[in-house]
Design a protein around this nucleic acid. Structure first.
Length: 158
DNA sequence: GCCAACGTTGGC
DNA sequence: GCCAACGTTGGC
């Protein structure tokens, strides 16, 4: 089973929004970066778990856990001219962008902030989130990194 | 609001 | 294929 991290700006779509969504499930769509697209299309499998990460805030942090309930399938918002994610280069015959469906699992007992993760950079190894200038909105997490962040959750903030 | 990092575009 | 210009992301 794989582990991932999904970024979202809470003002656009927050963990609370997911909690209130029908079935507590949402398509993870609108990703328009090829590397992230490849993870969505080929990497994330049903049953995989992902951290829900809030970016673009004063306190960027891992705030929850979601589970993949549908593996990669075409992102139809790409060929919807009314969608902010419209991309005329993607067509039903040749979809360029993909999405997955994720379901809310739980909120973390406390947010584990980016600042905190940076303090433990040495213990986290090569973590995609901590790479300089990393802007990937979908990124892989190793089993060790996953376990470590859950350990941090169980402890008092540093 | 600023700025660094990065991806994409398009001229050549 | 190179590279400058531009737009976007996202932390601070």
């Amino acid at each position: 089973m794989g582990y991932w991290l999904l970024k979202s700006e809470p003002q656009t779509f927050s963990l609370a929004d997911l909690e209130m969504a029908p079935d507590r499930t949402t398509p993870w769509e609108g990703v328009r970066n090829y590397q992230a697209r490849n993870f969505l299309r080929d990497g994330l499998q049903v049953g995989d778990e992902a951290f829900f990460y809030h970016s673009g805030t004063a306190r960027p942090a891992v705030v929850g856990i979601v589970q993949v309930v549908r593996a990669g399938y075409p992102d139809t918002t790409a060929w919807d001219p009314a969608s902010p994610y419209h991309d005329p280069g993607s067509t039903p015959d040749h979809p360029r962008w993909h999405r997955v469906d994720v379901r809310f699992v739980r909120r973390l007992r406390r947010a584990v902030t980016l600042a905190e993760l940076k303090r433990y950079r040495d213990l986290l190894g090569d973590f995609a989130l901590l790479r300089p200038g990393s802007r990937l909105s979908v990124l892989p997490v190793t089993a060790e990194q996953w376990a470590f962040i859950l350990e941090r959750e169980a402890q008092a903030p540093p």
